[in-house]
Design a protein around this nucleic acid. Sequence first.
DNA 1: CAAGTCTGTCATAAG
DNA 2: GTCTTATGACAGACT
Length: 635
Amino acid sequence: MKDLKKYMTEGLLQFTILLSLVGVRVDLESYLPPIREIILGSSSAYSPIPFHSLSLHPKSPELDSFFTARRLLDEVRALGDPRIPRTELSAWLVHAVPGDAEAGPVGVLLGTNEESPADPPSDNEGPSQTPARSSNLQPSHDPPSQPHIATEADPGDYTKETQEEKLGYAADSYGYNYLQSENGKRGLDEDVAQQNGQDGTIGAARNTDSSANSNLRSEITLEDIQSISNTNNPISSTAPYNVVFTEAISQDVSLQEAMYTSSHSVRSIGELTQTPESFMQLNSSTVPGGPLSVTDLTSLFPTTDNCSRNSTNQDLLSGLDENVFDEINLMSLALEEGFDPLEVSQLFEEPDSDSGLSLNSSHSPASASISDSSSITYGEDEGAAGYSSDSESVSYDGLEGAVGGSWTDINKLCQMDYQDDASYYDEVSLNNVRHNHSYNQLPDQLESSPEHHYSWTAKSGKLGSPSVGGLEKSLSRDERRAKSLKIPFSVDEIVSMPVEMFNNMLSKHYLTETQISVIRDIRRRGKNKVAAQNCRKRKLDVILNLEDDVNQLKAQKEKLLKERAQCSKSMSHLKQKLNDLYRNVFSRLRDDQGRPVNPSQYALHCNSDGSIIVVPRRLFKSEQKKDSQKDKKQK
DNA sequence: CAAGTCTGTCATAAG
DNA sequence: GTCTTATGACAGACT
């Protein structure tokens, strides 16, 4: 089993690598427990395979065939996955690494190259460049200077256009479809493009980068995408540039930007929960200690979701450390999920605060499922009607003036993020499974996790007030303990971390004995909690299997009893017929004097040659005794 | 309010 | 010997 598991895992890994080389990224976590086990160490507790749904013991040999079939099925699904372009984007960002944040993936995706090559970069050069970059991103939210949709679109057409764009986002080809609609319309990317243009020199450089990126993408990935997804990709018409690949790569471009935009792009279409982790990984692995410049930050912000263009600017600019991306994503994530800015700022101030994901699968009655919250409508009304929750209204009340962004713009983008059908929530819940650390939990458990959808619960009014105290109450004992001791890790991180990483974490961070002790306790309890869950599930499965066995055996017994009764009936019938025949034969037999033969004194005896003779019963009985004695002796 | 269920935790055996 | 996992037992919350 172990060898087979390893073989399957390696094969699937190679397959995934091959797919990634052609621009397709396969999310192994969605269906491949061995990968995690390989990376994190063997642990059934980490297995995302819900054994409750399998009704199999994890050590059961039946799982072998299951994994094989499942793997093949998922590979086929991955090949035919309509979301390939989106996932491909991430793969390209990882491999190519030339992206510029402004004119990079998002800019290109959203069609900046439609105008950027025609616009001479020098036109936009000027002294305004530096202030624009250091001005806390204000230009990006300047309504008068930007012909964004909100200002141009007719309010009546607003919903329609938004829906179209939303479809563009929701469509599996993601940005490319959006671009298609761009040919006739203006979109968010033009905000970015114009922003670039007004930024001056670097804006021009960004345009160059944009074209380079577009060219790069059209040369490398787009064809692959087209060949894979067969989508009508309008960007092919927008790639007339002949920037060579090396030139595109040689641009002075921050990988962080590209990665951030990547994460943003992915997140903006619903993979909210994926972003922080994936981004954190990319950031830590590829940009070691590279502090983000203000330029980078300004380039970041136009690409960020307008929902997050609020009071976070100061935080972002003040804390330009290596965790800035995490904070940005946390902030945007929190805002998208309806967190109160105060809470979010507290999250930033307290690095030990929980990531919002918890292994605690206790079902709080106050928690609301996603399906419940999906009934909330966003952006049905103009302006401030986008969000109905108090926290959100608070968070956006002062937004328009402070950030300078148009509320309509914000609302529109928020609509694009929120006003979606159930598939959006399905995707969210899927990504909960894929990208958080609650590997043992089912999506429904995650949905009902109190921390995870705290904002939704606040919206639904099931919690009295979305105060921090309510959040505290929803924390588990370990979470509260960790928070009180200022432990700079979330509980699920502590629990799900591999042993090696866990030990490194304990050694690299300065932690008190109490903190270390508590961390170890948290890890032990968390592990044991998962183990207990798995154990109970296995026990339940065993019980169910035994019940099935009992039912099968009962059915078999019934069947055998019926067969026996049938045989007995047949046997008695044959005996009766034989008896009748016997009597019939004797009634016709006559002795030498012509008298009838008495059946009580004589019997019929069948010889070995087939002849039948009439013998006296006493002789017959003595022969029978001899035969039985012979049999006994032989035995 | 009692009974049943669920879940987290502890202690301990097993690998 | 240490660590991790599995499992029985218990307690508390919940239904």
